[in-house]
Amino acid sequence: MADLCKVSFPGSDFETIILDIHSQLSEHLTIQNSPVLFGCRTGICGTCLVEVVGDIPPPKTDEQEMLEILATNNKKARLACQIDIISDVEIRIIK
């Protein structure tokens, strides 16, 4: 079980999903299994802006630049399409 991670969506009706460690969220989340919406899936549109609670790698430069525009001063904000899952996480949509 150490190679599996739980992705939960508190505050929504979506059930927790189990992914392999180092899964890219954008490859596994759909409108049927999560509240996260995706547009470009490359980190330039901001459609998948979320708050993440849990251990994930820090954003790369391009994502960080988008986060500074879309979610100033929100240290939990991330673009779901850019997240590499390395542990259990909670994901909430930023409204």
Rank of each mutant, 00 (worst) to 15 (best):
residue 1 M to V: 01
residue 1 M to E: 13
residue 2 A to Y: 05
residue 3 D to I: 05
residue 3 D to C: 02
residue 4 L to F: 09
residue 4 L to S: 11
residue 4 L to G: 00
residue 5 C to S: 07
residue 5 C to G: 03
residue 8 S to V: 05
residue 10 P to E: 05
residue 11 G to E: 09
residue 13 D to N: 15
residue 13 D to F: 02
residue 13 D to R: 08
residue 13 D to W: 00
residue 14 F to S: 05
residue 14 F to P: 08
residue 15 E to C: 00
residue 15 E to Y: 01
residue 15 E to I: 00
residue 15 E to K: 15
residue 17 I to H: 10
residue 18 I to V: 15
residue 18 I to D: 05
residue 18 I to F: 12
residue 20 D to F: 07
residue 20 D to W: 02
residue 20 D to V: 08
residue 21 I to E: 15
residue 22 H to V: 00
residue 22 H to R: 15
residue 23 S to T: 15
residue 25 L to D: 08
residue 25 L to T: 07
residue 25 L to N: 10
residue 25 L to M: 07
residue 26 S to T: 01
residue 26 S to H: 13
residue 26 S to R: 15
residue 27 E to G: 06
residue 27 E to C: 02
residue 28 H to R: 13
residue 28 H to S: 12
residue 28 H to D: 01
residue 29 L to F: 07
residue 29 L to K: 07
residue 29 L to E: 04
residue 32 Q to A: 10
residue 35 P to L: 07
residue 37 L to D: 09
residue 38 F to I: 03
residue 38 F to S: 02
residue 40 C to E: 05
residue 40 C to I: 01
residue 41 R to Y: 02
residue 41 R to L: 10
residue 42 T to G: 15
residue 42 T to M: 13
residue 43 G to E: 08
residue 43 G to F: 12
residue 43 G to L: 07
residue 44 I to R: 08
residue 44 I to W: 03
residue 45 C to R: 10
residue 45 C to K: 07
residue 46 G to A: 09
residue 47 T to A: 15
residue 47 T to L: 01
residue 47 T to M: 14
residue 48 C to Q: 03
residue 49 L to H: 11
residue 49 L to K: 12
residue 50 V to P: 06
residue 50 V to I: 15
residue 51 E to V: 00
residue 52 V to N: 03
residue 53 V to K: 11
residue 53 V to G: 00
residue 53 V to L: 10
residue 54 G to S: 01
residue 55 D to G: 00
residue 55 D to K: 11
residue 55 D to L: 07
residue 55 D to F: 03
residue 56 I to M: 04
residue 57 P to F: 07
residue 58 P to H: 01
residue 59 P to Q: 01
residue 59 P to D: 00
residue 59 P to V: 04
residue 60 K to T: 00
residue 60 K to A: 11
residue 62 D to K: 12
residue 62 D to N: 13
residue 62 D to Y: 05
residue 63 E to W: 03
residue 63 E to R: 04
residue 63 E to H: 05
residue 64 Q to P: 00
residue 65 E to A: 12
residue 66 M to W: 06
residue 66 M to A: 10
residue 68 E to R: 13
residue 68 E to Y: 03
residue 69 I to M: 13
residue 69 I to K: 14
residue 69 I to L: 14
residue 70 L to M: 11
residue 71 A to P: 10
residue 71 A to L: 07
residue 72 T to K: 15
residue 72 T to M: 06
residue 73 N to P: 01
residue 74 N to G: 04
residue 75 K to S: 14
residue 76 K to S: 13
residue 77 A to W: 09
residue 78 R to W: 04
residue 78 R to H: 12
residue 78 R to A: 09
residue 79 L to M: 09
residue 80 A to Y: 07
residue 80 A to P: 12
residue 80 A to H: 10
residue 80 A to R: 08
residue 80 A to K: 08
residue 81 C to Q: 09
residue 81 C to A: 02
residue 86 I to R: 11
residue 87 S to Q: 01
residue 87 S to H: 08
residue 88 D to E: 10
residue 89 V to R: 05
residue 89 V to E: 08
residue 89 V to C: 13
residue 90 E to S: 15
residue 90 E to F: 00
residue 91 I to C: 12
residue 91 I to H: 04
residue 92 R to T: 15
residue 92 R to E: 12
residue 93 I to D: 06
residue 93 I to W: 02
residue 93 I to N: 12
residue 93 I to F: 10
residue 94 I to R: 14
